[in-house]
C-alpha cells in the first residue's frame, strides 16, 4: 500500500467532529476510544475485588428516580456502609446512575458525562422508563430504551424503585464486577459507530465533539 492509501485509511479512522464549527474542530481530540485488555487472571481478579468494594457514584440526578438516591445517601439507608460514595464530577466517578426517564436534552448530557468518566465505568439504570419507556412511552421527548444509547450493566425495575431495591441493584453490580462480567466500557468502544448512530438519530442538534474526554 502506498502512503496515500494509508493516509486515507487513517483519515477514515479519525472522528470527523462535524457537528462543531470549523474554528473549534481542531481544539478537540479526534482519535477513537480504544478497548482495555484485562491483566492476567489473578491480578485482574484482585483488581475486580477492589473495584467492587469502592464504587464512586456520579451524583447527577437525571430524572425523577433520583429522589430515591437522597434517602440512599443519607443516614436512613446509608449507602456508605456498602462502600458507595457520591462524587460531584464524572471524572472522579465509576458508577453512573441514570435516574428514570431521560429526555433528549438530558441524554445529550448523559452521553457527555458517560464518555468523560474514567474507566473502569459501570452504568445502573433505575426505573421502568429506562427499560421500555414506562409511563412516558408515548412522549415525544423521552427515550424508550436506554441501552440503545449507552451500555447498561444493571437495570432496576420499578416506578420508582425503593432504596432497598437500589441496594439490591448495587449488590448485583458488585457480583457482576467480581465475576468480571461488566464489559460495558469495551462494548461501547467495539460498537462505537452503532451507538453514535443511535445517539445522533435522536439528538438533532449535535454540537459537541464525537467523543468527549
Amino acid at each position: 500500500m502506498s502512503k496515500k492509501h494509508i493516509d486515507e485509511i487513517e483519515k477514515q479512522m479519525k472522528l470527523a467532529n462535524a457537528g462543531l464549527p470549523e474554528k473549534e474542530q481542531g481544539l478537540f481530540e479526534n482519535t477513537r476510544p480504544t478497548t482495555v485488555d484485562a491483566f492476567n487472571k489473578y491480578y485482574e481478579g484482585f483488581l475486580n475485588w477492589a473495584r467492587s468494594r469502592s464504587l464512586w457514584m456520579l451524583a447527577f440526578g437525571t430524572g425523577c428516580g433520583a429522589t430515591e438516591l437522597r434517602p440512599l445517601m443519607t443516614s436512613r439507608y446509608d449507602m456508605s456502609r456498602y462502600g458507595i460514595a457520591p462524587r460531584p464530577t464524572p471524572r472522579q466517578a465509576s458508577v453512573f446512575v441514570v435516574g428514570g426517564y431521560a429526555s433528549i436534552k438530558t441524554i445529550k448530557r448523559i452521553v457527555r458525562s458517560y464518555e468523560q468518566m474514567q474507566g473502569p465505568k459501570y452504568v445502573i439504570a433505575l426505573g421502568s422508563c429506562t427499560i421500555n419507556g414506562g409511563m412516558y412511552y408515548d412522549s415525544y421527548n423521552t427515550i424508550n430504551r436506554l441501552d440503545y444509547y449507552i451500555p447498561v450493566d444493571v437495570y432496576i425495575a420499578g416506578c420508582m424503585p425503593r432504596p432497598e431495591a437500589l441496594i439490591a441493584g448495587f449488590k448485583r453490580l458488585k457480583e457482576k464486577i467480581r465475576a468480571g462480567e461488566c464489559e460495558g466500557m469495551n462494548d461501547y468502544v467495539e460498537k462505537f459507530d452503532w451507538y453514535k448512530e443511535n445517539q445522533k438519530q435522536i439528538i438533532k442538534d449535535w454540537n459537541m465533539p464525537d467523543y468527549n474526554w
Partner: peptide, 23 residues
C-alpha cells in the same frame, strides 16, 4: 433543543406515532 418537526403541543402532532418511529 434542535426540534425540527411541527411544534409538539399542537393537536395535529401525533405524539405516540412520533415516539414509536424515533425511540
Amino acid at each position: 433543543e434542535g426540534w425540527k418537526d411541527i411544534p409538539p403541543m399542537r393537536r395535529d402532532f401525533l405524539t405516540e406515532e412520533y415516539s414509536m418511529k424515533l425511540y
